[in-house]
Design a protein around this nucleic acid. Structure first.
Length: 489
RNA sequence: CGGGACGUAGCGCAGUCCGGUAGCGCACCUGAAUGGGGUUCAGGGGGUCGCGGGUUCAAAUCCCGCCGUCCCGACCA
């Protein structure tokens, strides 16, 4: 079937397109366990590169990695009232071990605030022990009703940062700093533009004082919460007796923050950049940045092309270039598969740059470079191939961010909009709507009932409209803040 | 957990209404030709038809029960 070869188009069915793209690019596969997926090498390769970049950024901001248990005593979860209310309904609980019923059930961590702050309480005595800046790479389990590859699975991989500080202001500064780190990563590495801002009380983390988030727009105009950073105040410190002796005497509760991003980012990457031919992976995160496809007819030509290609691989991998390391290049020397078939395969996988090398090129001492993002072809001299490849990869990285940002802005509404028009918009194409909010949870709830849209964030200053909206989107009363309204994943 | 659909070869499906001993496409293996955008021909391997029970001379097909998956809702990184 010719149709088998093509993906469902994004326009026809975005959901189906996403599933097919993820499965066919072999990022992940369904597993025998309901709601749990297998992350395959192609997907894990992207996650590994994300991890490495983020980990470097965490280290650069003073954090250290540690590891805490998968199991959490059930009673721990109950020590913070809002926290248990938020997470208890979606926990997996271990009641038996070694064939015997446990005295106290163990929760499989849905997040690690409780067990981590119980340990912090042991380690912190004095203000001199603060700040304590810890990150953990781990898996967590949340018993979701409905799952989707990468976007929502029962088990997922993530990092969770947990810190303790001597004052509210220090904690707030840390919360904002890490939100900034996330934004830098999402835009700089993933080429995925985000809006940063504060969550409303309805959307904030269970147990937090304030939650900030990075929200990205997917190609179906829905919002993806890509990362969150929480100022936990003293809520957990009080629950776990995390106290320190202050500089001028007296015992005080510490101030905590926590922040996390997950393998959901891989899904975000797909839905931000993918097209009807498959994935488009930004160079910085691509496990392979450049694939070389040799073209030949005869055996003699084949060996000449492969020999030339090997030399190019040698040159390119030895060529020291931009900061994050050497070029990741792959020579596709498989025989018996036509070049066209190889092109489709590498395009499906989203490899950012392809080099075609045939007899006609070699005669002219050149190769043809093809960008995945624009599919633009360009012959380049073999004498300057290193510079050309590095330059193109850099441009692809930049152009992908620009294109994604333009798409987001084209699907954002920043003019005054009637509630009827808003409903029609959310019923149809969707998008981000910048509009006023009166601050009442009732209006939030009503809008959600009417349209499924919610306040994604109260945007930070740089994202706000020049002309601040004066009235609430729904009730028309004076607005206390500008809000980004959208349907979300 | 409610509504819908589905479970037959690695993948996608037909066959089920009307019972008769399993088929198509892709993928895979072998050979030859082909090779600058999904190559062609020839040959070949592979399935206790989700599981359990029942009806029948005979069950992928009819009946009962169970399990699982996907999609749509309520909950969510």
């Amino acid at each position: 079937m010719a149709d088998d070869k093509k993906l469902t188009t994004r326009a026809a069915d975005f959901s189906a397109w996403y599933n097919e793209a993820v499965l066919r690019a072999e990022l992940a596969d369904y597993s025998p366990v309901r709601g749990c997926m297998v992350i395959r090498p192609n997907g894990y390769g992207i996650w590994e590169r994300m991890q490495r970049a983020l980990d470097d950024m965490f280290k650069a901001t003073g954090h250290k990695n540690a590891y805490f248990p998968l199991f959490i005593p059930e009673s721990f979860l109950h020590k913070e009232a809002q926290h248990v209310e938020g997470f208890a309904p979606e926990t997996a609980v271990v009641t038996h071990g070694g064939g015997k019923k446990l005295e106290e059930p163990l929760i499989v961590r849905p997040t690690s605030e409780t067990i981590i702050y119980s340990m912090f309480a042991k380690w912190v005595q004095s203000y001199r022990d603060l700040p304590l800046l810890i990150n953990q790479w781990a898996n967590v389990v949340r018993w979701e009703m409905r799952t989707r590859l990468f976007l929502r699975t029962l088990e997922f991989l993530w990092q969770e940062g947990h810190t303790a500080h001597a004052s509210h202001d220090e904690a707030e500064e840390e919360t904002r700093r890490m939100l900034g780190v996330y934004r830098d990563f999402m835009e700089g590495w993933m080429a995925m533009p985000v809006i940063t801002g504060q969550k409303t009380d309805a959307e904030k983390f269970a147990g937090a004082l304030r939650t900030y988030a990075c929200e990205a727009m997917m190609q179906d105009n829905k919002a993806l919460q890509a990362g969150t950073s929480h100022n936990l105040g003293q809520n957990f410190a009080k629950a776990f007796d995390l106290k320190f002796q202050a500089e001028h005497g007296g015992q005080e509760f510490a101030w905590n923050t926590s922040w996390g991003v997950s393998t959901r980012l891989v899904g975000g990457l797909v839905m931000t950049h993918g097209d009807d031919n498959g994935l488009r992976v930004p160079p910085l995160l691509a496990p392979i940045e450049l694939v070389i496809v040799p073209i030949y007819k005869t055996d003699d030509e084949r060996s000449r092309m492969l020999e030339a290609a090997e030399r190019i691989v040698q040159t390119l991998t030895e060529w020291e270039r931009r900061e994050p390391g050497r070029l990741r290049v792959h020579l596709d020397d498989r025989d018996g598969i036509k070049p066209g078939a190889k092109y489709y395969e590498w395009e499906l996988r989203g490899i950012p740059l392809r080099m075609e090398l045939g007899p006609r090129d070699l005669e002219k001492n050149q190769a043809v470079l093809v960008r995945r993002d624009t599919r633009e072809k360009k012959p380049v001299s073999l004498n300057t191939i290193g510079e050309d490849v590095a330059d193109l990869l850099m441009r692809i990285q930049e152009d992908m961010l620009i294109a994604a940002r333009e798409r987001r802005e084209q699907n954002s509404v920043r003019r005054p909009i009637s509630y009827d028009d808003f409903r029609a918009l959310m019923d149809g194409p969707g998008g981000f709507v910048y509009a006023g909010w009166c601050g009442s949870p009732e209006c939030e709830t009503k809008v959600k009932e009417d349209t499924k849209a919610t306040v994604r964030v109260l945007p930070d200053e740089e994202f706000r409209s020049a002309e601040p909206p004066a009235t609430c989107l729904r009730c028309g009363r004076p607005a206390i803040a500008e809000a980004v309204w959208a349907k979300a994943y």
